[in-house]
Design a protein around this nucleic acid. Structure first.
Lengths: 336, 336
DNA sequence: TGCTGATTGACACCGGTTACCATAACGCTA
DNA sequence: TAGCGTTATGGTAACCGGTGTCAATCAGCA
C-alpha cells in the first residue's frame, strides 16, 4: 500500500505492511530455519506484492563483503576472453554474483598500481586472473596482500590447487606433434610463441617431448619464434619454408600464427595440406574459417573458467570439480 | 596508529587520528570547496599515511546510487563485444565507475525477465545495450520503467539522442557498393543478414540505394540471405555463383559471410579478386587474416562505445561528443 | 556590540545485519 | 494446578561506513 516516497520498497516497508519487525523480514530473505511457517508465508506474500528486492549495497555494507567477482586480463584474443566470460557467467547464474571486467596493459609500468587501485576501490569478492598476466606472481601476491581471493587460469600449474585452474599445454602439443609423426611426418617445423609467456614455453616443451619420443633430433633451422600474431606467423613461415630440406609439417603455437604460416606457404606456391601440413593451437574462430580449415588443439576455455569461478565463490563445491583440464585435437583439413 | 581491528581503515579512523569529524573527512574526499586549506592538508596526510580508500558500498548506500555500469549484450561477435568493452573502459578510466557484463540469450523466452532480475538485483547506475538486442524496444522500455538510464548502440537511430549512439550502416554500404560500381562492376550480388536484425535491414537498404543511384536494376537471382555465420555465407555464395550471368562482385553483410562466399568461390575454382570481387562488413580479425585479405567496412566500435559510456555517466560532457559515427571502407585485396 | 561569512561538527539517515533480550507457549514435576 | 525450566519466535538497539542537514563557532568588520 504505502510504498516509499520515491523509489523501490525497502525492508522497512515490507516489515511495516506485514506487521512484523525488519529482523523477521531479514530472516525470511535469508531462509532462517527458526521461523514460524505462517509468518514466513505472510511476509513472502507482502514481498511478492511489493516486488521487494533487497538492496545489494546495503547488504554488502552490513556483511562486509560484496558479490562482485572481477576478471582481470590482458589478452589479445577476443574469443578467449569472451569464452572465459561465458564460463564465469554460467557459474554465477542464479546467484547474486555479478561479473566486473577489468582489462589491463601488461606492458604498462603502472600495471601493478592500476590493479591495486582497482582492487582497493572496488573491494571485490574475488578476482580471476587470465593468461598471460595470470603468470605474474607479483599480481597474485598483491591479491593475497590485499585480502582478495583469487584464482589463476593458465597453461600449467603455477599455484596451489585453491588458486589455480590449469590446462596442460605441454601434453597437448606433444600429442598433436605425435599425431603428425603418426601421419608419416618426420621433418616437423615449430613456431614458438613469444618469450615471457609461460604458455609459449610449455608448448615448446611439448614439441621437444614429442620429437624426443619419436627419436627425431631438433633442428634449429626449422624452429622460429613469433609473438602470437598473424604477421609474425608469416615471417616465421617464410623462415621455415626456406630451410633445406623443407619441413613437411609445421606446428604453430597458436591459430593466428598458423594462419600466417598458411599465408606464407601460399605465397610460395605450396598447397596445404598436399605440400605442407599445419596444426595450430586454441581453436579460435579463424581456425574454422580459413581455407583449408585448420587442424588445431582446443582447450576447454569455458569449462575451465566455470571451474575457476566456482572455486572462487564456493570452495567446498569446487572440490567436486577438476583443477586440471585436458585439451583435444580438432581434426580438420590442414594435415595430410 | 590505532587502526580498525581487522581490515581497512575507515573514515572514522581517519577522523579520529586527524582530530576532526567524519564529515570533515568526507568533505576532503569529495573536494568540497568550503574547507580550510590547512585542515585539508592535515586530513590528506592522515589519509595517505593510513592508505585509506573510501568504501564504495557505503558510499553507494548513502548516495542511493552506485558506480557500476552494465553492458547487456547477446552478440555472436567476440571482437565487437571486446571492442565495446575497451571503449567503455577508456571512458571510465580514472573514475570510480566499473563495468559489469551480462550476456543474455536473445532467443530465450525469459530474456526480458532475466534482464529485469539482473537490473533489480544489481541496481546499476546505468546500462548499455548492444546490437542486436539494443534494437528491442521492450528492453529500453523496461530500463525506463525500472529507472535505470540506458544508452543503445546501433546501426541506425532508434531512440532520442540521449539514449542512442548510432553508426550509419545504410550509408556505409551504399558507399561500398558505389565503390564497386566505380571499379567497373555492374553485376553485384548481395548477401543479406538475417531477418529481424535492424543492421541487416539497413545494410540491404544501402545496397538498394547504391544500385538505384547507379541505375542498375535489382535482380533477385543474385541476392541471398544468411544469418551472419560462415556456413550460411557459403550457402549464399553457392546460390549467387550459380546465377547466370554470374555476378562479378558480391557484397556480404558481414565478414564471416564474406569469408563463406570466398570459400564457395574457391570451391568452384574461381579466383578472388580476378574472377570475383568481394566486400565484407565489420572489419573483424578474420577480414585481415584470410587470403586474399578482405576489403571491408569498418565502423568505429570503440569510439562509439566510449561516446555511449560518456553519455551514460556525464550527459553534460556528452553533448560535446557526436551521437552519430561514420564508417570507413578499408581497402585490402579482395576487389579488382 | 552586532552582523556576516567561512569553517566545522553533531546527528540523523541510507537499508540491510548481528547480538541480545523479551515474551509466549509448552512440557514436566510436585 | 501452581511452579518452573525450555524452546520457539520475534522485537530492540547498535552497527556497517559513508552523506545530507542544519546549527554552532569564530574571526573580521562596520
Amino acid at each position: 500500500m504505502i510504498k516509499a516516497r520515491d523509489g523501490k520498497p525497502t525492508i522497512n516497508d515490507v516489515a511495516r505492511i506485514a506487521g512484523v519487525s525488519k529482523k523477521t523480514v531479514s530472516r525470511v530473505i535469508n531462509r532462517s530455519p527458526l521461523l514460524n511457517e505462517a509468518t514466513r508465508e505472510k511476509v513472502e506474500a507482502v514481498i511478492a506484492e511489493l516486488g521487494y528486492v533487497p538492496n545489494p549495497q546495503a547488504r554488502a555494507l552490513a556483511l562486509r563483503r560484496n558479490f562482485l567477482i572481477g576478471l582481470i586480463h590482458d589478452n589479445p584474443n577476443a574469443q578467449m576472453v569472451l569464452g572465459v566470460q561465458e564460463g564465469i557467467l554460467s557459474a554465477i547464474r542464479d546467484t547474486e554474483f555479478a561479473l566486473v571486467v577489468r582489462p589491463v596493459n601488461r606492458r604498462s609500468p603502472t600495471m601493478l598500481e592500476d590493479v591495486r587501485t582497482f582492487l582497493e576501490q572496488q573491494r571485490l569478492f574475488g578476482v580471476m586472473l587470465l593468461p598471460p598476466i595470470s603468470e605474474n606472481d607479483a599480481l597474485a601476491e598483491l591479491c593475497e596482500q590485499l585480502g582478495v581471493t583469487y584464482v589463476r587460469m593458465g597453461s600449467v600449474r603455477l599455484d596451489d590447487d585453491a588458486h589455480m585452474v590449469a590446462s596442460n599445454d605441454r601434453e597437448a602439443v606433444a600429442k598433436a606433434v605425435a599425431y603428425l609423426v603418426g601421419r608419416g611426418h618426420s621433418r616437423i617445423g615449430f613456431v614458438a610463441g613469444p618469450e615471457g609467456f609461460r604458455s609459449a614455453a610449455e608448448r615448446a616443451l611439448g614439441y621437444r617431448d614429442a620429437l624426443a619420443t619419436a627419436g627425431v633430433a631438433l633442428d634449429p633451422a626449422i624452429m622460429a619464434e613469433g609473438n602470437y600474431t598473424f604477421e609474425t606467423g608469416i615471417a616465421a613461415g617464410e623462415k621455415l619454408l626456406a630451410a633445406a630440406p623443407r619441413p613437411t609439417a609445421i606446428f604453430a603455437s597458436n591459430d593466428e600464427m598458423a594462419a600466417g604460416v598458411l599465408h606464407a606457404a601460399r605465397r610460395q606456391g605450396l598447397s596445404v595440406p598436399e605440400d605442407l601440413s599445419i596444426i595450430g593451437f586454441d581453436d579460435t574462430a579463424i581456425a574454422a574459417h580459413i581455407w583449408p580449415p585448420l587442424t588445431t588443439v582446443r582447450w576447454p576455455i569455458q569449462a575451465m573458467a566455470k571451474a575457476a569461478a566456482i572455486k572462487l565463490i564456493d570452495p567446498a563445491e569446487a572440490r567436486k570439480h577438476p583443477s586440471h583440464f585436458l585439451s583435444d585435437l580438432i581434426e580438420r583439413a590442414s594435415v595430410a
